[in-house]
Amino acid sequence: MAVLKRIAVALVTLFFVTTLTFFVVRNTPGDALQVWALEIVQTYGISMEDAMKQVRAMYGYDPDEPVLSQYIRYVKGLARGNLGTSILYKSSVNEIVFQALPWTVFILSTSLVLSFSIGALLGMAIAWKRKTVLDPIITGYAAITGATPDYITALILLIIFAINLKWFPLKGAYDPAVKPGFTWEFIKSVLYHGVLPIAAYTFENTAAWALAMKGSAVSVLGEDYIMAAWARGLKERRIMTRYMGRNAMLPLVTGLAIAFGSMMGGSVLIETIFNYPGIGWFFNQAVARRDYGLMQGLFFLTAAAVILANLIADLLYTRLDPRIRLEE
């Protein structure tokens, strides 16, 4: 019953957010046609006036349709699992998402899992043994990655490992000479091309998780049950992982859930530096060109993912911390 209630609340939230987003997106200020026309001018060598006319003719948005009827059409579509239509590309948002999202999910989920698990273990270790040299090292590492934009980390990795050493490929998700399919050669190529982006992302985010874990673990350390565990003579390792770690993980699960959810928005870093064919490129394009249809679809996807992830996190708490009961 409690679970059902949670799901109902999540659905209401989603509906609320979707509605709000719809009207925010439709009211985004700015005339994207000028910017787009300028792009056309500079690549195709025609005059600005020509480009403007051409762009107007290609932009398939009918501003005269009442907003309310647009909204109803959009929500009806969503109910049928249709994320909408890109007014620019005249193709369904579902198709774009279907092709672009797996790449984003592949890179980001792998890096997220890596950075979270490494970070959480490190955080536990430094909370546990506060006087070791590991603590200042992790702190320094955190300060450095905190201050270096992921953009630079990625660029430095690219310059060292792809340009100078030539160990890893410079760009793309796989070698265009390899035919995509469920073959070992293709998977190998995908993994090979994924190394640098995953490394960049993991390197950037591990320290933050470690510090968050440490902060959380420190507050758990003073708990009576930890004392009790010591008194019972349990093994140090067991106390660290079972008693401290598990309890300290609790607030981090929320962060992880949100990170997983917002992953659907793609990562500019991966799209621009590594030329990875993820969802972020479409996101940027949609916003820059005010492709309302695509914007809405992608924003909805992100919102749905965050809300779903939060719901899962909420339900997980009860398993991680048996003291919490779902309220009736």
Binding site: V17, N27, T28, S262, A303, N310
Partner: peptide, 16 residues
């Protein structure tokens, strides 16, 4: 959840 999921960019543009 609304704050977490409402797209920031368009809202900020409206702000601007």
């Amino acid at each position: 959840n609304t704050v977490l999921t409402i797209p920031k960019f368009p809202v900020m543009l409206v702000f601007a």
